[in-house]
Amino acid sequence: MQNLEALTDILAAAHRLGRIVAREAGSTTPVAQWRALSALEENGPLRVGAVAAACGVTQPGMTRLVELMTAESLVEKRPDPTDARAVVIEITDAGRAARRAWIETVREALTPRFAALTDDEWAAIQTTAALLRARTTDYPNGSE
């Protein structure tokens, strides 16, 4: 299963890239926060369970993270329009701004490591990113 090994390698490299960016940026923000803000930005308001599933964390863990993000005005809780007993989490303008700033930080941290790539190497990365994005966006309902 050489093909599956390549996916495992990509996953491991992505985790290393995340650690490199966090270290170079001096960030102590949990990576799940950036994943949560991205999920909310891409999908709109979601229940806590759906955000947790999108981020690969437990629902109790996401509940704690949502409390922290709410206190920082990065997200808001709103009544779920389909179920009065539930709430959905919605990204705020401050959350969008924080996410944009983090993306810029990621770009700045990674640029020196990848500046010498050829056009063909960039094309391979862009193709890989598109393939992965197309096969990893099926989580808005909270299940994977």
Rank of each mutant, 00 (worst) to 15 (best):
A101K: 05
R100Y: 10
E76K: 13
V66E: 03
R100C: 05
A129I: 13
A124T: 12
A98F: 12
D120V: 12
A101I: 00
A50S: 15
T128I: 09
L117I: 06
I91Y: 08
K77Q: 15
P112L: 04
Q59G: 06
R100D: 15
E108P: 00
L37H: 08
A134F: 05
R99Y: 15
S27F: 09
P30W: 02
S73P: 04
E41L: 08
R78S: 08
A71I: 07
L37T: 01
E121N: 04
A52S: 08
A39H: 09
A50T: 12
T118H: 01
A101T: 09
I91T: 13
R64A: 13
P112H: 02
A115I: 11
I89W: 03
R64P: 05
A53N: 14
L46W: 02
A71R: 15
G56D: 05
E104A: 14
I103E: 13
A50F: 12
L40M: 10
T105I: 01
Q59D: 13
T127P: 02
Q59E: 13
Q126L: 12
R96L: 09
R35F: 10
A86R: 15
R96W: 07
R47F: 01
V51S: 04
V87L: 08
A52P: 14
P81A: 01
R78V: 08
R78P: 04
A71W: 05
D119L: 03
R78M: 10
L74Q: 12
T128F: 02
L131D: 11
Q59R: 09
V31H: 11
A98M: 12
E90F: 00
I91P: 11
A36Y: 11
V31P: 05
L46N: 10
A54F: 03
L74T: 00
T70D: 14
A71M: 09
A50G: 15
A52L: 04
L117T: 12
S73I: 07
G44H: 07
E67A: 14
L37I: 00
T63C: 02
A123S: 13
I89G: 06
T58Q: 14
L40F: 07
F114T: 09
G95N: 00
T58M: 05
G56F: 09
V51A: 12
Q33I: 08
P45R: 00
A129L: 10
A86F: 12
A97I: 07
L65C: 05
I91G: 04
G44V: 11
R99A: 11
E108Q: 13
Q33H: 07
A124R: 08
E72N: 14
A124H: 04
T82M: 14
P60T: 06
L117D: 05
A32W: 07
I103A: 11
T92P: 11
V87G: 10
P30H: 03
T105G: 04
N43M: 06
L131F: 11
A32L: 08
Q126N: 12
E104I: 07
T82H: 15
T29A: 14
A54P: 03
E90P: 01
P81C: 03
L68C: 03
R85M: 00
A94G: 03
D83F: 03
P60H: 07
R47L: 05
R133S: 09
T58W: 02
V51F: 07
W102Y: 15
A50H: 13
A86I: 02
P45T: 00
I103K: 10
A52N: 04
E42V: 04
R35Y: 12
L65P: 04
W102C: 02
R99V: 00
P112V: 01
A129S: 10
